[in-house]
């Protein structure tokens, strides 16, 4: 089976998406009047890292506070097989609500082609040539401090273009498994939307928590809804180190029906430090 490649015809919209993202990155990254909120170890909120600060996790991304309003992030290992870059723009505050937008760019094709193989680990059949896909994500983040707690609302969606055709029926390239399906739905349908609500804060000494509920809509897929609930315990033995331990429950609709996952473990260790070049 071969993919009927016609990349040039589909390149224009993809290029436009990339250009728009770059323009956003360059244009909105400039300093603006209102103050932006910064914090360590608070990813997935409206708060960005302070300028010149780096954070990295064993499984989490490498984050970099580039300017007062711009944070960049990428997964160092994942980027080798799935080139990607995330940018978070801090827009300041509206009253007591901190506002940021998060944008991601991902080219997953090399990774999916690695997973297109015979035998164990073959997530995609080896005779399927995975198409070239360019995917973006765009989310608005609103955070509000409630005493020592931080409440964050996230809403947005994902867009994607496949630059070459799917090899065989589209579902041959899909991955019908928890966590993966809602995050890859747009690769197949062009778009998906999602929203989430998270609460985090300190508990006692260096211990803290984060709870999160997320919902996904994936119009165009057979089985087009998913929801996730996450409970994390955090421990910060010192200012520059954080351990995270918890679990996620995922409910997801698949082509054959809906399933509730067993608790999926979440573990990570993150470090924070000043960028050597800063």
């Amino acid at each position: 089976m071969t993919g009927g490649a016609s990349p040039l015809r589909r390149l224009a919209p993809a290029t436009a998406t990339t250009a728009a993202l770059l323009a956003l990155l360059l244009g909105l990254g400039r300093p603006r009047p209102a103050a932006a909120a910064h914090a360590l170890f608070q990813p997935d909120t409206a708060r960005t890292l302070p300028v010149g600060r780096l954070e990295v996790g064993v499984f989490g991304p490498l984050r970099w506070g580039v300017t007062d309003r711009l944070e960049l992030a990428l997964h160092p290992l994942l980027a080798l097989v799935a080139p990607q870059l995330d940018a978070t723009f801090a827009w300041g505050a509206i009253g007591s609500v901190e506002v940021a937008s998060h944008h991601g760019l991902l080219y997953p094709t090399p990774l999916m082609r690695l997973l297109s193989r015979e035998g164990t680990g073959g997530i995609v059949p080896h005779d399927v040539t995975y198409p070239h896909i360019l995917a973006t994500s765009h989310h608005l983040r609103l955070s509000r401090a409630l005493g020592a707690q931080l409440l964050t609302l996230r809403a947005g969606g994902r867009l994607a273009r496949h630059l070459t055709r799917f090899d065989g029926p589209r579902f041959w390239s899909e991955v019908e498994w928890h966590v993966v399906r809602p995050r890859t739905a747009a690769w197949f349908t062009g778009f998906s939307v999602d929203a989430g609500l998270a609460l985090e804060g300190p508990l006692w000494r260096g211990l803290g928590y984060r709870v999160e509920l997320d919902g996904y809509l994936m119009p165009g897929l057979r089985g087009d809804k998913a929801a996730e609930a996450t409970l994390l315990a955090t421990w910060q033995p010192r200012a520059t180190l954080q351990l995270r331990l918890g679990a996620m429950l995922s409910w997801c609709e698949f082509p054959y029906g809906s399933r509730l996952s067993v608790p999926l473990p979440l573990v990570d260790v993150s470090w924070s430090f000043d960028a050597p070049w800063h």
């Binding site: 035998g119 164990t120 680990g121 073959g122 997530i123 995609v124 059949p125 080896h126 498994w177």
Partner: peptide, 9 residues
Amino acid sequence: YVPSDGIGP
């Protein structure tokens, strides 16, 4: 899900 040979569900 069978994570082998692309079998899936």
